[in-house]
């Protein structure tokens, strides 16, 4: 939000260099470089098993890479002291696949968790902030006191998004935000993410399989191929010669999504 420098277009908020990831003998990433610029929406795509979610977890510091450096907001994530890590975690928000809401708490309590953990705000302020976030995420007022199990999949994701936004993060990480949603729900979620990104000046790192999301909300696309990434806008991706990328964007689904966007 406003607590961050204005959008400059070329400031790098996530810088991955020479990343190497191995599970046993299996090499997932090898010499992977990736830059995410402030204020952009980056969509990460790749076939199954190419390590999209692993890349996300490495950037979040949940998995240690075998080699390489990952800098988030200027801090090297692999060499961070515990207090510094916590301070950094307050500057990003993460939405996991199914919302990952704490099932024993109501939606409002879920959204309040980061505020209660990381700030010393009084209850009235926390509650007001929670209400703002829940409204931002497009949830109806009465869902505040519901438990996650009482919500539909789409509403759980919105509640997860509200929790991710609780601390006014600078970077928002989304792991397959539209997976499991019906096309209407998915389109609404895309619109929500796009709208929030614009009004809050967020940088969004989105792992997705959804071609429509890629084409409607992403500024740039990072395709994981051959253990590295190739980045570019949709237009650049369309001219890529790599066979997987060609298949992805020129396959029937890719064409349909692009045509739909052009018709809009």
């Amino acid at each position: 939000m406003d607590a961050q420098p204005p959008y400059s277009g070329d400031e790098t908020v996530i810088r991955v260099r020479g990343l190497r990831t191995r599970f046993g003998p299996q090499v997932i990433h090898d010499g992977l470089d990736l830059d995410v610029r402030r204020g952009e929406v980056l969509g990460v795509v790749g076939g199954s098993g190419t390590g999209k979610s692993v890349l996300l977890k490495e950037i979040l510091g949940l998995i240690r890479p075998a080699a390489g450096s990952i800098e988030v907001l200027g801090h090297d994530i692999t060499a961070l002291s515990e207090p510094a890590r916590v301070a950094l975690q307050r500057r990003w928000g993460v939405l996991f696949q199914d919302g990952a809401l704490f099932s024993s708490m109501t939606v409002a309590e879920n959204v309040a968790v980061p505020l209660r953990e990381h700030t010393d705000l009084d209850n009235a302020t926390i509650e007001a902030a929670v209400r703002i976030k829940i409204r931002m995420a497009g949830l109806p007022e009465d869902s505040c006191s519901k438990k996650p199990s009482q919500l539909s999949g789409g509403m759980r994701k919105r509640a997860g998004l509200a929790r991710a936004l609780a601390l006014d993060p600078e970077i928002l990480f989304l792991d397959e935000p539209t997976a499991g949603l019906d096309p209407i729900g998915a389109a609404a979620f895309d619109e929500l993410v796009g709208g929030l990104q614009r009004s809050l000046g967020l940088t969004v790192f989105m792992v997705t399989h959804d071609l429509d999301s890629l084409i409607t909300v992403c500024d740039r696309i990072a395709a994981l191929v051959d253990r590295r990434v190739r980045t570019g806008t949709v237009a650049e991706m369309l001219t890529e010669s790599h066979p997987w990328i060609r298949n992805y964007f020129h396959g029937p689904r890719g064409r349909a999504a692009i045509d739909a966007q052009e018709a809009r």
Binding site: T106, A108, A128, R131, E141, S145
Partner: peptide, 18 residues
């Protein structure tokens, strides 16, 4: 816009559990 959202949220009745 943010202020408008805050003004709505700030005076609403407490959320509370069911």
């Amino acid at each position: 816009g943010l202020l408008d959202a805050a003004r709505k949220a700030e005076c609403a009745p407490p959320i509370g559990r069911p």
